[in-house]
Design a protein around this nucleic acid. Structure first.
Length: 791
DNA sequence: AGCACGCCGACT
DNA sequence: GTCGGCGTGCTC
């Protein structure tokens, strides 16, 4: 069809139609695969097009990333398969250049296979409906008497069933109940030529209906008027002007917004209106499903019509939302992490709500951080990026300090409760063993009960490790090199650093105060609930944690209980902050604020501080009697000082200084490498090999630097000690904190580097060499760029 | 990633 | 002997 040469005119190199395509498949594969374009598809295959290709024994949707008119380098010369079909010409199967770029960026940024990244920008590539493939008896299978063949019992049964249904049966129908047995029999029958497996590569049906919008509340129209008329909260008076200026900048500005939940929501509504006025679209991303739902509902209540996208929706519902976003029928989309890839064009505002939330980081490959993707999307569309939270992440705050974004702090001082930091050491003798109930805490609860008001106890015991601490001063032994808490191994009687893997004998005295009372901590918090119940037998006590609140329905039930005034004291973990109890408690206590510091992670102080801030937010304003008590043995810790004085900057500046001193993010860039497999010695050996490879590369680069530059010769010793002079530092390998996960042994290596690219590039290069070697023992090599926690 | 194939132990 | 569980290697 393309080859319409006019006869008579000599064929002077007519632009040849491409004959080969590179296809990226939605699998964990690092390279594209080359296919032949069959003659009937000549001229119809373009970059960005989704195609159906045979891959092994299955048919897959893949994405065309390149077209060639001759065999591309590296492709096998024979045995190439042909593209089976084009995916239907629906927007569902066509990536825009922007989406291709985003997926490519993601693959580079997070050292992830491109195919996996494409799944995020085009979820429907993964949906070739396998249930539509059918098994059919062949002619031979229809005619041969089954008794004659060497068939197993199951094979004979399956063949008999298929003979009765010459149009074939789907695997789902055939394999009811007994999957693998029948699948195996089918393979046997196929091998014997009695059955064929036919893939019609049917594309999933287009979803019906337009129920993608959350229910509109009856008062929405009225509400819109109300909020417009509502004066801005005094602390955020400057916001409308700030947003207006930011939106007017053509380059795409970034703002770091810090404030309470209600203030932030007001700011969001203002920003949305200003953006929509300019004819541009809005993407709002937040950490958890409930919050996304709540935001969407609140936006509905003020008259907006956001699309809602999160992992709680069915695949079909998600596809529908995706289509609506692409079809431009919506201007606002609210959702969780995954929503940051929604195909919403012409963005004017990208809002990350709760930008410090760790759930914005995906823990599966590709291990992206939605905040970073949001940044990328905003910059591609020259949109305004707003990172909003009650307490900024250190990353974002440092970026603001560097002048990369403007900071807007809208704190309503009037709504702050009175905060008291209690020194547990001072009450050591008065506290019943293991209960942590100091006299002031006890009084606080009693006062709240007397007023018939709510008391909340926040127990931060997430990710507890076995750690030693000094009973006198509260200090915890740390790794000299990594400055993270050392984990205590009782059986081996040693302490170990999870970052660099070094072990030491258990120290016999505290380095801070020379006390000899170093003891393991960790069990005290469990007894608090019991102690509260015993001390206040008349109080109605409720517990909120991962066990009591499993589903959103549980949270609603709990809220109903509270609303009906059925609870006096609520004890809980971070889960407390998701219930929307902000500003409701007369008394909030944190019996053991240090608990969060017992996590061997350089971010443990930041997490602890954020948890404490969230706890403070649960209390009423001081003028309404709101009191917060925070108990600690580390009263001089910057988190406690910041909390006691109410000056965020105390914490942020001090913490940033620590990170700088110890070369942690945000001042350096971190990559965690996971080596896992079924045989421990092989895993350990492979991890050693990778670390050695990395060190060799680093040393090689350092030698080059020396030759080129200063000429001073680094001694062997200094080189192997990886001194400050090096821009890349390799820590480990060490067994992962949870050394065995699902029968696989895990080891990890940390790569610290001054430039993010240097670390990433080094890691990717060495993985290639490593994977070229043997892959026995089920070894896997995973890369986590900017890890948020140790695995 | 997902699938087939092959080897091995448990059971009819 | 058959069944089904894993470990291993391959996919244009």
């Amino acid at each position: 069809m393309f080859d319409q040469r006019v006869p008579g005119i000599p064929s002077v190199a007519p632009a040849p139609s491409p004959v080969y395509v590179d296809v990226v498949l939605p699998r964990r594969l690092h390279r594209p695969f080359t296919y032949v374009i069959p003659s009937e598809l000549t001229g119809q295959v373009a970059i960005g097009q989704s195609v159906i290709v045979p891959f092994g024994s299955q048919d897959l949707h893949g994405l065309v990333t390149a077209v060639h008119d001759r065999l591309p380098l590296g492709a096998p010369e024979q045995g190439l398969k042909a593209v089976r079909a084009l995916a239907p010409a629906s927007p569902n199967h066509l990536l825009t250049p922007a989406q291709i770029d985003l997926s490519r960026w993601l693959a580079d940024r997070y050292a992830a296979p491109w195919g996996q990244c494409i799944k995020l920008v085009l979820p429907s590539v993964d949906q070739v409906d396998r249930r539509q493939s059918r098994y059919l008896p062949t002619e031979q299978g229809m005619t041969t008497p089954s008794s004659l063949e060497g068939l197993s019992e199951v094979e004979a049964q399956v063949l008999a069933r298929l003979r009765r249904r010459p149009r074939g049966l789907t695997e789902a129908t055939l394999a009811q109940g007994d999957k693998s047995r029948i699948a195996r029999a089918l393979q046997g029958l196929i091998r014997k030529g009695l059955v064929v497996h036919r893939h019609d590569a049917v594309v999933p049906k287009a979803p019906r209906g337009n129920r993608n919008f959350p229910q509109e509340s009856a008062q929405a129209h009225l509400a819109k008027v109300t909020i417009d008329a509502l004066p801005p909260p005094p602390e955020a008076a400057a916001w409308p002007t700030t947003v207006d200026q930011a939106l007017s900048q053509d380059a795409g500005a970034s703002l770091l917004l810090q404030g309470g939940r209600d203030t932030r929501f007001w700011c969001l509504v203002q920003a949305i209106r200003a953006t929509v006025c300019r004819g541009r679209r809005v993407l709002v991303v937040t950490g958890d499903v409930e919050n996304a739902g709540r935001l969407a509902e609140s936006l509905m209540a003020v008259g907006e019509r956001p699309l809602l996208l999160h992992s709680g929706l069915s695949a079909r519902a998600r596809t529908a939302v995706w289509q609506s976003a692409q079809a431009s029928s919506a201007t606002i989309l609210v959702g969780t992490r995954m929503a940051v890839f929604a195909p919403l064009g012409g963005l004017g505002l990208v809002w990350v709500e709760g930008e410090d939330d760790v759930s914005l980081k995906e823990e599966q490959v590709p291990r992206y951080h939605a905040r970073e993707v949001a940044r990328r999307r905003a910059s591609c569309d020259r949109a305004l990026l707003v990172l909003a939270s009650s307490h900024p992440s250190l990353e974002s705050w440092a970026a603001a300090q560097q002048g990369e974004m403007k900071v807007c702090v809208y704190r309503a001082s009037a709504s702050a409760p009175s905060v008291r930091v209690i020194d547990l050491k001072a009450y050591a003798r008065e506290i019943p063993a293991g209960t942590l109930l100091s006299p002031p805490l006890y009084e606080g609860i009693r006062d709240a009960l007397r007023q018939n008001a709510l008391a909340i106890l926040y127990l931060n015991r997430k990710g507890f490790a076995s750690v030693l601490h000094c009973a006198d001063c509260g200090a915890m032994p740390q790794c000299d090199a990594c400055s993270v808490v050392l984990t205590f191994f009782k059986r081996r009687n040693h302490v170990r650093c999870h970052y660099c893997g070094r072990t030491k004998p258990v120290p016999d005295h505290c380095h801070q105060c020379q006390s000899l009372k170093l003891e393991p901590v960790g069990s005290g918090t469990e007894r608090i609930e019991e102690a509260v119940r015993r001390k206040f037998p008349q109080a109605r006590v409720g517990r909120v944690d991962g066990e009591t609140i499993r589903r959103p329905a549980d949270a609603r039930a709990f809220n109903r209980l509270l609303a009906a005034d059925e609870l006096d004291v609520v004890i809980g973990t971070q889960m407390l902050f998701r219930l929307g109890l902000q500003g409701q408690a007369a008394f909030v206590a944190v019996p053991d604020a240090d608990a969060g510091l017992h996590v061997p992670d350089f971010r443990s102080a930041e997490r602890t501080y954020h948890g404490l801030m969230d706890a403070v937010e649960l209390a009423r304003p001081a003028h309404a009697g709101g009191v917060v008590m925070v108990q600690t043995r580390l009263t001089v810790h910057h988190a406690m000082v910041a909390l006691a004085t109410g000056h965020d900057a105390v914490f942020l500046e001090q913490e940033l200084a620590f990170r700088q001193m110890l070369q942690y993010p945000p001042l350096t860039s971190l990559v965690r490498l996971d080596v896992s497999g079924t045989l421990e010695p092989m895993v350990a050996q492979a991890a050693d090999r990778w670390a050695a490879l990395l060190r060799a590369e680093v040393a090689g680069a350092a030698r080059l630097d020396i030759k080129a530059g200063c000429g001073s010769i680094m001694s062997q010793h200094a080189a192997s000690a990886e001194g400050e002079s090096s821009t890349v530092i390799i820590l480990g390998p060490s067994p992962a904190p949870h050394a065995m996960v699902r029968g696989r042994y895990c080891w990890q290596i940390l790569v610290k580097s001054l430039s993010p690219e240097a670390g990433r590039e080094l890691v990717v290069r060495t993985r290639e060499t490593l994977e070229r070697g043997s892959r026995r023992g089920g070894l896997r090599f995973d890369i986590d760029v900017d890890p948020i926690a140790m695995a």
